[in-house]
Amino acid sequence: MKLSPDETIFWQHGFITINLTIVTTWAIMLILVAVSVLITRKLKTGIHISRWQCILEMLITFMNDQIKEVGLNHPEEYIGFIGTLFLFIGTANICIILPWYEAPTGSLSTTAALAISVFMAVPFFGIMKSGLPGYLKSYLKPTFIMLPFNLISEISRTLALAVRLFGNIMSGGMIVAILLSITPLIFPIVMKALGLLTGMVQAYIFSILATVYIAGAVEGARKSEKTKAITTK
């Protein structure tokens, strides 16, 4: 029994491996981009808009609002990263209703990749906002004694992100697979429905946590800036 879509390998040449995870990811990317292009191609700026545009706008406005609620004041700067996280994970998890589909988020490699992306994005946005010294200083808050703990928390939360998503999605797929062997009718459908819900919740949690981490970095940098400004005054 395969636990991860990584184990389904289509082509391998030394280190380079094209497995089901990568292929499914490409497919999802293609769908997302194609849908975006199709809808945004006919965007209207008038009062009457198409239903697809309306759905898209609702989605993006919702994401913007969420980012803002967390504490990032210019959501349009972060929506590219956070929104893509949510859309990718959400789409990947929704697609579990398709038969023979295996979510790429059920692979620890993918979730690790996403967690590493967040791990990279947090200092990126922090440095972009307040420069490298300002960002690095945030690791010494409240005192330099906290530096190792801050570093540990940075790494552990990345690990937690990766494992949480992987565990949830993989477990969902596992449960369905196990239930199929026990009660092949009806019950797996219920579990699939539940899987859809957990999938969406996980997508939301993953994006929100990423936002919180980024917001923490940006906020910490801003605070240090503020104190700096006050002391210079």
């Binding site: 497995n19 590219g80 893509t84 790429p104 692979s107 490699s109 993918t110 990749a113």
Partner: peptide, 19 residues
């Protein structure tokens, strides 16, 4: 699978750019 991890990171950033 570290290759998959790298590939997915790249995939993700490409997706970010595209979206």
């Amino acid at each position: 699978n570290w290759f998959t991890v790298i590939a997915q990171i790249i995939n993700f950033f490409v997706l970010v750019w595209l979206l």
